[in-house]
Amino acid sequence: MNKLKNNATVALEGILFDGMTIMAGGFGLCGIPEHLVIALRDSGVKDITVISNNCGIDDFGLGILLQTRQIKKMISSYVGENKTFEKQYMSGELELEFNPQGTLAERCRAGGAGIPGFYTKTGVGTVIAEGKEHKEFDGVTYILETGLVADLSLVKAWKSDDEGNLVYRKTARNFNPVMATAGKVTVAEVEEHVALGDFDPDQIHTPGIYVDSFIVGTDYKKPIEIMTTREYVA
């Protein structure tokens, strides 16, 4: 079978349905599946529950799905940079479930690994712990968090081979590898398609078993949220 699809629209064909749960990799605007998100918007699929650390900015990344009101609920750790998000949440249009960032990552990891729940001390004594089972281990209190599985995971990698083996680049890795494991279907977008054998098998980050299909994106925008630099000293 051929995992390489012509474009994002083709890759998502027959997978999308209203009310579905979608994971999207990325941290801020770094390592986000920018082409797949645009295809998601153009598909018109609605009432989506999105699991993603952030929700992009107002006019880029997942933020564009807020503008079209395709998102019903967000499961995130931080939404600070998105005004549309704040407005829709405050007006009650958008549901929001805050997860501590590490708990969110571990929930994806657990979901992908067939682990339905785990105990963590993150959030004990805060609103995050309300209504959750508490348990003591060696005198320390932990809360029960559940694994997450999505109908679809959208991830961004640097390179893929024909098998769908993925390699990420620098901090654009972030949530992508764990989310790749936790989708019933996982679609990746990459900057470069390499031939079988080009990767050193020891250096592969996500084995192809997790990747159902991939596309090669072009003209990556990769906007920078906060440009910080230092001066050359003569």
Binding site: F27, G28, L29, C30, G31, N53, E81, Q101, G102, T103, L104, A105, E106, C108, R109, W158, Y168, R169, K170, T171, A172, R173, N174, F175, N176, P177, V178, K222, P223, I224, E225, I226, M227, T228, T229
Partner: peptide, 26 residues
Amino acid sequence: PDLINAGKQTISELPQSSYFSSADSF
């Protein structure tokens, strides 16, 4: 753009740097 810190600022790497997933990080 593929190299930012948790405050979303652009940063640089060092000879001893390593990268890993959010799950490994936490």
